[in-house]
Design a protein around this nucleic acid. Structure first.
Lengths: 206, 206
DNA sequence: TAGATTGTTAATCGATTAACAATC
DNA sequence: TAGATTGTTAATCGATTAACAATC
């Protein structure tokens, strides 16, 4: 498998390229170059060419890259040529914000349902969704073949809920609890902890 | 300045160490080792020792690290021995979640006020705050000496609002808009784009 | 003392950049 | 054609790991 050899750090930059290309397209642009992309992202042109060359030859000497074509190719590489259904687990403030977030559309993801274990929340409306009992989740994700979850429950419950998600067949978890989740090697986790980012910046503040 | 020489990637790991140490402390632990820390974080023990040694000698041979002491030292290094006041800009769903988030307490940050430019939102209650007109922000942050902001406005307005924040003296921005903000070199930006994380995972999904 | 673990040096590994032939 | 820009190789740079003397 050629896939195995591509460094994770390179994979991590593709979504950044994709985001910028989509912005350029929205600006009505047709063509770009590794230099221009690099300038907009604060990345060297050589690195962008090197990254892309891991997956194929997408440009033309003397011309650069067709934005629309490169965009399509990166989407294919990242498996974003389809839209992934996602379950939101936890209907607190964060789950609420995720359920109503407009930014998933056209970027490859779509919220399918919202779950919670709190009887006071089950049955309530959150955005376009009615909060479902978390006990219904395993059957739902199996039936709908959903393998992506966004986890927005209190830290104290996050690991336990994660175990349940993994058992239900979830393979990718976007985790909003500020803890390190333990999962089997075939499950991906990305954690978003805003405090980590703030603390990283405060080092440089007076 | 010795500070200048410390790689950003090392600074970025300190908050992770801090988070784990605080968890250990909450578990009633007194002492740990680079090996144990590494196991809990999925980082090699050698790297943890190397990282810490950039800032001083915090351990004891044969014993390891006193959790409470190391915690205090890392807090000092990251300038988290004080609590930073933070303004929330944008009182939509994300601003709402940030304003009510309990996770800032004891981790060095505290929301001071919430701002928006929408007359329908100004004056409304959001958590413990009353949403203020964004025109009041510059005076407020100057008076309160606030230099950290969390930006939760629509992408289309994010750069313009950023310029205003920078003019008002803000030096660190946690950005929730999915765009690359342009700021002067003395201003730090960290962007949180959940879709970037999802896209990074979808590469590995079937 | 014997065992454990640090802080640090040197070796290894991996990522980034510079340079350029190929070619649109 | 002349100018521009790719894809790629080799050189550089930086980060991680292994190993170990020092010492608690």
């Amino acid at each position: 498998m050629e896939n195995e050899m591509i460094p994770d750090i390179v994979v991590g930059r593709l979504p950044l390229y994709l985001r910028t290309l989509q912005l350029m397209l929205a600006e009505g642009r047709q063509v770009t170059s590794s230099q221009e992309l690099g300038e907009r992202l604060g990345i060297s042109a050589a690195q962008i060419r090197k990254d892309l060359s891991q997956f194929g030859e997408f440009g033309k000497q003397g011309t650069g890259y067709h934005i629309d074509y490169l965009l399509t190719q990166i989407k294919k590489i990242l498996h974003l040529d389809i839209s992934w259904g996602v379950v939101v687990v936890g209907a607190g403030d964060v789950g609420h914000a995720l359920s109503r977030y407009q930014g998933f559309t056209n970027r490859g993801f779509s919220v399918s349902k919202v779950f919670d274990n709190d009887p006071a929340k089950i049955g309530q409306k959150v955005g376009n969704f009615t909060v479902e009992n978390i006990t219904e989740l395993p059957e739902f994700v199996r039936k709908e073949r959903i393998i992506v979850a966004m986890l927005a429950v209190p830290a104290a419950q996050a690991q336990q809920v994660t175990d349940m998600l993994v058992n239900a067949g979830i393979k990718a978890i976007l985790n909003y609890a500020p803890i390190n989740l333990l999962v089997p090697p075939d499950v991906r986790v990305q954690t978003i902890d805003p405090v980590l980012h703030l603390q990283r910046m405060s080092y440089y503040l007076e």
